[in-house]
Simulated scan of single mutants.
Amino acid sequence: MVDVLAEINGNLGAIGYGLAAIGPGIGVGLIFAAYINSTARQPESAGLTRTYLFMGMAVVEALTLIAFVVPFIHS
């Protein structure tokens, strides 16, 4: 006779997505921190660094969307 201590029901993809969203969340924070730091040091370069801000955000958010889709593919 086998005693079951814990049984996992449901989609583990939700847990995987939650763990995968930690990295892009940290990445977005680092990108904004670098933008604020560079703008505070040289306010005249805010236009150029804003472009890099949005490019970095697009890359990080693309990784988040990929992490969102992968659990549905493997279901």
Rank of each mutant, 00 (worst) to 15 (best):
L5H: 07
L5Y: 11
A6H: 11
A6E: 12
N9L: 13
N11S: 14
L12D: 13
L12A: 13
G13R: 04
A14S: 12
A14R: 13
I15D: 06
I15S: 08
G16A: 10
G16C: 08
Y17L: 12
G18D: 05
G18L: 10
G18H: 05
L19A: 12
A20P: 06
A20G: 07
A21F: 02
A21I: 06
I22H: 09
G23Y: 12
P24G: 08
G25L: 14
I26D: 10
I26S: 10
I26A: 15
I26L: 15
V28C: 12
V28R: 09
G29Q: 08
L30G: 06
L30W: 11
I31R: 06
I31V: 14
F32Y: 11
A33Y: 01
A33P: 01
A34R: 01
Y35L: 05
Y35K: 05
Y35M: 02
I36K: 00
I36A: 00
I36E: 00
N37R: 05
S38P: 01
S38N: 06
T39R: 08
T39G: 01
T39H: 03
T39V: 09
T39Q: 05
A40N: 00
R41L: 00
R41V: 00
R41T: 01
R41S: 03
P43S: 10
P43A: 08
S45M: 11
A46K: 15
A46H: 10
G47D: 04
L48V: 12
L48W: 13
T49S: 01
R50V: 09
R50H: 07
Y52P: 03
Y52Q: 11
F54E: 08
F54Y: 15
F54Q: 09
F54R: 12
M55A: 12
M55K: 02
M55I: 13
M55N: 07
G56S: 04
G56D: 04
M57N: 09
A58H: 03
V59D: 03
V59F: 04
V59I: 09
V60N: 01
V60I: 15
A62R: 01
A62Y: 02
T64H: 13
T64C: 13
T64W: 12
L65Y: 05
I66L: 15
A67Q: 08
F68R: 10
V69Y: 14
V69Q: 06
V69N: 05
V70R: 05
V70L: 15
F72H: 11
